[in-house]
Design a protein around this nucleic acid. Structure first.
Lengths: 336, 336
DNA sequence: GTTATAAATGTTAACGTTTTCATCATAATA
DNA sequence: TATTATGATGAAAACGTTAACATTTATAAC
């Protein structure tokens, strides 16, 4: 393995000069720099990052942590996040991916191992991790979950407004009995979406009907089960808002099994706009939230934070938008 | 930051002794070891991996490379792979994730930066990367794509047998006009599945009908387009095998748009058994391939290879299995 | 009680960088 | 021309570990 000293020897200079030349120090004469650069290239020199990082106390590594790799994290979510992040990240940063839940101890979360940390957080259970990283002095930004603590940089989607838009849309289409299949209890996003839904109802002078609130956990199966509950009601809702697309798919399945037609008999609205939402039968009307944009914004923030650690923490919200497809029927010009 | 020397001072021994004690050397008296371990824990010691790796010439890092993060890689695929790999990987290994296609140069692929490499390969275009890594002397195993070169450790699924089973199933259900929507041209898996499909036909004394072979590229949209072509045929197939589930979903959509009922009018078989396959309408009969198992097996292999670099390269194939759901009709007891 | 042997610990160098401080040219100033 | 800045380079130390080799201490053998 060829080192800086080999280059120095070949160039007839000291290894210090080589180091400087290769790192773009202004103290090096252009001629010398060019010569050294050429030799380094010819010799196929690759710096030893362990040595480099040892003295600079950097790691060249960004850690991306999900609440869980195993469960609760939908795959498109993970991939979109990854994409957005990688787009912003200089190629010679390493990006590691791990699940918080399958970490036995927090010892490995150390400034020397991570220059910065991105947490794709779904649940408050991540707080232990988050505060550990923060206490360790590692620049970090929490993505996806809205935090109450303003001291932690945060990028999330406007879950509440998105859900509100969903309710609003249902109302505009003439629906008055509107149900909701809620997200996993304890997840901030679930609270936000629930609240946004209620806001939307209220804004349309509709009183939330508690019989139409049913608990889910963001999984397909929970969506199915929840919908079955809703369908067993005497006075069924005419539309239901599912707090994510996975549950909407489960709900669709339940309807299909019971012979309920969507949107003729029941309207459905999802949340997330994952790839398959456009290909369900019927195509799902849903709220688009851009995970990759969250990833990009978050990475940008983190990078800035790493450069200037005293940057004041920012909370940023990424907009959601309603995408109308075919799972909501228009009741407004007929009797309800 | 506390170092091995701080511990040494506190324990009244040399830092070498501390190093040995902490690394489980047999040369250390149990008493001494216990004392040192306690002190280290008390002081919250975390080893500096840069220093460690500098002298051991290790990196503690496994690189996971996908052909592309941006396109062609379905998300469930990525996640399943990640899960399988993480399960086998000792927690203090770092796992980095990157796309081969968004790498400008191969310089960063260096033995000092990666103890081992896993390539989730989909296309022959990855070969440049693969051979570079191999030439650099980094232990690597190629996953997911069957390689022709027996010198490279390889774990993939039995695409061919899986596809054969799909064709076989269609035949057993009484279908005789069976079409195929092929995978992305140039991808090994596409060739294998096509060939397996033909094998299955032949085994049932069915001559492949070239009008029923239509090209796709593994994307949902290509599945839809391909199915439209098939449906425009005068003499339509009664069953079609889609080389992955994504395309099967696209195909379903095309059918639905044209009012073709599945499975009454047309039977459909997918490949992969991704999560949503069980929730399409109707639920998709498909070939299950376990990406996470590929990940696990591959990681196991890699770990062994890293320990004993002279382990002879192995090609391993992971079995596929037919999972029957409701997208294939039984024609065998009525006239075709 | 030596002496030989093994077990436990210590000394020192090495890994490949960057950085601090010193040195030496060279150009600018008096 | 002597003096001082300035620009370019080099020497040596430092980063926190492990490992080769040296030394001490305990144990066994005679």
């Amino acid at each position: 393995m060829i080192t800086i000293k080999d280059i120095a020897r070949a160039a007839g200079v000291s290894h210090t000069t080589v180091s400087r030349a290769l790192n773009g120090s202004s103290l090096i004469k252009p001629g010398t720099r060019a010569k050294i650069a050429k030799i380094a290239a010819d010799m196929n020199y690759v710096p030893n990052y362990n040595a480099k990082n040892l003295v600079t106390k950097k790691s060249n590594t960004i850690g991306l942590f999900f609440s869980s790799l195993e469960q609760g994290t939908s795959s498109s979510f993970l991939v979109d996040a990854l994409k957005g992040i990688r787009q912003m990240l200089n190629e010679n940063y390493m990006l590691t991916v791990s699940g918080i839940d399958d970490m036995s101890g927090l010892d490995s979360i150390h400034p020397r191992r991570f220059d910065g940390i991105l947490v794709m957080s779904q649940s408050e259970r991540d707080n232990r991790f988050i505060y550990h990283a923060k206490a360790a002095g590692i620049p970090l930004v929490v993505l996806n979950r809205q935090l109450d603590d303003p001291s932690i940089p945060n990028v999330a989607s406007e879950d509440r407004r998105g859900a509100r838009a969903a309710a609003q849309h249902a109302c505009e289409m003439g629906h008055r009995r509107i149900g909701i299949i809620e997200g996993r209890s304890g997840f901030k996003s679930a609270d936000e979406r629930r609240q946004g839904f209620i806001d939307g109802l209220l804004a349309n002078r509709l009183a939330p009907d508690m019989r139409f609130f049913v608990q889910g956990d963001y999984s397909i199966e929970s969506g199915r089960a929840a919908m079955e509950k809703l369908l067993s009601l005497e006075d069924k809702p005419s539309a239901v808002f599912c707090c994510n697309d996975d549950m909407a798919i489960g709900a669709m399945n339940a309807c299909f099994d019971k012979g309920i037609l969507i949107p003729e008999d029941l309207s459905l609205i999802g949340f997330d706009d994952m790839m398959f939402a456009a290909y369900t039968n019927p195509p799902l009307t849903t709220i688009r939230k851009s995970v990759s944009e969250i990833g990009r914004e978050g990475t940008e923030l983190l990078l800035k934070l790493m450069e200037q650690p005293d940057t004041p923490p920012v909370q940023r919200l990424i907009g959601c938008e309603l995408v109308r497809r075919s799972s909501v029927s228009n009741l407004s010009n007929r009797k309800n």
